[in-house]
């Protein structure tokens, strides 16, 4: 049994569900869960339940491991050697994509980003090519497979394992090339779009920035994040950080509710791997109805408040 490392992401001291899905992607392997922040003892039960044979708290002799991406990449490279890993997987979150690319450059190893399916043993991965129009199957010919998995693309399945805890301090220092001067906090408690299990998106038909409150009220009831189409962002109704699609974010939630989104090919590029897509649109001929799962023809200002009330 080959040994696979999984970089665990946490939020408020708990393992993110997206990381559990990444562990499931490596099922059948001896899983080493690598934790960079928080108390591994507190994460132990969950990680053991989903397959971690070992839970390693990662640190660096050169300082706070979470303070800079290059230091964390250096520590991960050391962990790959220390635990003799044949694969290291992470989440294709904003931070995960950045970190794994740094790691791949540092180790000069191939990297498959944003996979939707993975065969760790066969070092083969499936991922989107051409803005979600095609899937590419890539085989990696290297001693170590590095890959990030699209959040929510692989559903987490319990697979109880020992979950023995350990600590590893890598002997690495920050190269000091990039210095984080400041972190500007966005809206507190907002669920990150790329990792959200449910997303409600408002398109041009939302008509004004303040009308997103209507979607936020609905989202709050089901733990969803709120997104926007390019048309809505370009019209100034929403910031670019909320944009789903080409030139915005790629998402793959289990439920995607598009409200007043026409359904341009560039929008689908960012959300077509969602499990279930629902569209609410006034125009019965809107292109989105041809490519989604369930449709309601209606004014979003009539339908959404009723949906919020009944959820």
């Amino acid at each position: 049994m080959a040994r696979t490392g999984i970089l665990i992401e946490t939020e408020n001291g708990a393992v993110k569900d997206t990381s559990l899905g990444v562990m499931t992607a490596a099922k059948g392997q001896e899983i080493i869960a690598l934790v960079t922040d928080g108390d591994p003892a507190g994460l132990k039960d969950k990680l053991a339940e989903f397959g971690a044979a070992k839970i390693v708290k990662l640190a660096a002799s050169g300082g706070d491991i979470t303070a800079g991406p290059d230091l964390l990449a250096g520590a991960l490279a050391a962990a790959v050697k220390e635990y003799d890993l044949t694969a290291l997987l992470g989440t294709a979150s904003v931070a995960g994509k950045d970190l794994f690319a740094r790691l791949a450059a540092l180790m000069d190893l191939p990297l498959v980003s944003d996979c939707v399916a993975l065969d760790v043993e066969g070092k083969t991965a499936k991922k989107s090519h051409f803005s979600g129009k095609t899937f590419a199957t890539l085989k990696v010919d290297a001693a170590v497979l590095l890959a990030t998995v699209r959040p929510n693309a692989i559903e987490a399945e319990p697979a109880p394992a020992a979950g023995e805890t350990a600590e590893f301090t890598a002997d690495v220092a920050d190269p000091g090339k990039v210095v984080i001067k400041e972190v500007k906090k966005g809206d507190a408690d907002k669920i990150d779009l790329t990792e959200a299990p449910i997303i409600i998106t408002g398109g041009r038909a939302i008509k004004a920035a303040e009308n997103y409150k209507m979607l936020e009220a609905c989202a709050a009831k089901i733990g969803a994040a709120v997104g926007a189409s390019r048309a809505a962002v370009d019209a100034g109704y929403a910031p670019h950080s909320m944009q789903v699609g080409q030139t915005g974010k790629t998402v793959s939630p289990r439920l995607y509710i598009a409200c007043g989104v026409s359904g341009a090919v560039q929008h689908f590029a960012g959300m077509k791997t969602s499990k279930v897509i629902v569209a609410i649109n006034e125009d019965k001929d809107a292109p989105i109805f041809a490519k989604c799962d369930y449709g309601i023809v209606g004014d979003i200002f009539d339908v959404v408040p009723v949906l919020t009330e009944k959820l």
Binding site: V179, K184, G186
Partner: peptide, 12 residues
């Protein structure tokens, strides 16, 4: 942008 609308300012 580093996710959830948070932003980092980085000097190089």
């Amino acid at each position: 942008e580093v996710g959830g609308g948070d932003k980092q300012v980085i000097e190089m």
